[in-house]
Structure formats: structure tokens, C-alpha cells
Design a protein around this nucleic acid. Structure first.
Length: 83
DNA sequence: ATTGAGCGA
């Protein structure tokens, strides 16, 4: 399951996202999106979890939770079926 | 040097 994570602290990195979500299940991929030009964080990222129940549990537990001093937003990534 | 809704190299 792909997970969308937003409102991250600009200093938060992909590895921080990985360990943060790993506490609630297996994380196969985690990355913060950085700007192509400035190499600065865009403040959001994506996490991939193979186990759906762990993923949904992580979303509910980590959504609007405090990470690195900021309240983050965690939700399912955009379904390729929609949009 | 900066910002803060939104979906990615």
C-alpha cells in the first residue's frame, strides 16, 4: 500500500520516514520528495508498506501525529484508478 | 535566506 505523508519538517529525511513508519510495520520503501533544482525538501513524501493492515494501522496512528516537531498528515497515496 | 498545501525522478 502506498502512503502519502505531508507537512513534514523540511529537515526530515527519507531514512527518518523509514524508521518512523517501521515502528508500525514493515516498510519496503520510504522517501521524502526533494526539489529537483534546489535539492530542498518539498515537505512531503511517500511510504510503501506491503502489509495492508499494518499500513492502515500506521496511517491511523501516525496521521496528525508529531514528527520532528511538526504535526504531519498521513493518508493513502493517490490511487492510480482515480484522478 | 525564505514556505506549509498538496500526490512523486
Amino acid at each position: 500500500m502506498n502512503i502519502f505523508v505531508a507537512k513534514l519538517n523540511f529537515r526530515t529525511t527519507s531514512e527518518q520516514l523509514n524508521e518512523y513508519f517501521s515502528a508500525y510495520g514493515t516498510v519496503t520503501s520510504a522517501k521524502v520528495i526533494f526539489d529537483r533544482e534546489t535539492q530542498r525538501s518539498k515537505g512531503f513524501g511517500f511510504v510503501e508498506m506491503p502489509d495492508d493492515e499494518e499500513a492502515e494501522n500506521a496511517i491511523r496512528e501516525l496521521n496528525e501525529s508529531m514528527m520532528d516537531g511538526r504535526t504531519i498528515v498521513v493518508k493513502k497515496a493517490r490511487p492510480k484508478e482515480e484522478r
